[in-house]
Every structure is written in C-alpha cells, then in structure tokens.
Amino acid sequence: MLIDNGRPIFLQIAERIESDIIDGTLAEESQVPSTNEFAAFYRINPATAAKGVNRLVDDRILYKQRGIGMFVSTGARAVLMQRRREEFFDQYVQPLAREARKLGIEPDELADMIRQGEHAIQGGTQ
C-alpha cells in the first residue's frame, strides 16, 4: 500500500497529483483520473479521494469540465515548482545542515559533498 496511515489521506492524494504534474506524468491540459479511479487504485474511500482532488481544484491547479472530467490547468507546473522550491529549505536543507553539524561536517565540506552527489546523479542518468 502506497498510503501512509498516519496522515490525512486527502493531503497525500493531493501531493501525489502535484508530484505527477511536476515530473510531467500529468501534462498540462491533460485529463486527470476520476475520483472513483483514484479510490479504486489507492483502495480508499471515494469521498476522501474527492476531497484531495477538490483541494487542487480550489487551488486552481486542476479545473473541472462539467460532464467530462478534471484537467490540469495551464501554468500549474510552474506554480507547483515555485511552491516546492520554497519548501525545499525547510524540508531538506535544514535537516541536512543539522545532521552535518552533529557529525562535525564543516559547511565547506558539506558543499563539496553536495557537488559530489550532483555528479553521481548526472553520471547515473547519462
């Protein structure tokens, strides 16, 4: 099961869809699966799935077309990228810096390690 039991599921559904938009799995102006399809796939209550999807509609990341379904808004990807970038410092950089300090890794050394990590990823994708 891909759902984590301790957090509200509608938030997790909304995050999933956001990630799919960011990495291009869901292109702008493409149709998003229906609430019932999400419910069946993730094995969750359809009302919960609807709550997750509606959150993105309220946010204008998705838009509804009556009788047809739900689509990704134009410009959604840029909005989400900007939001994730803002969260990046809190979510990733701060814990990293904290752990580095605990282990006595100096900021310069840490910066080097990040560059090495970047190299490793590039090597892996080429």
Binding site: N36, R43, P46
Partner: peptide, 11 residues
C-alpha cells in the same frame, strides 16, 4: 471484499 465494496459503492 474491500476492493469490490469501494468499487460498487462508488457507482
């Protein structure tokens, strides 16, 4: 059972 319940309840 759970899968069929969600599926049929949706419809």
């Amino acid at each position: 059972f759970y899968d069929r319940l969600v599926e049929d309840y949706s419809r």
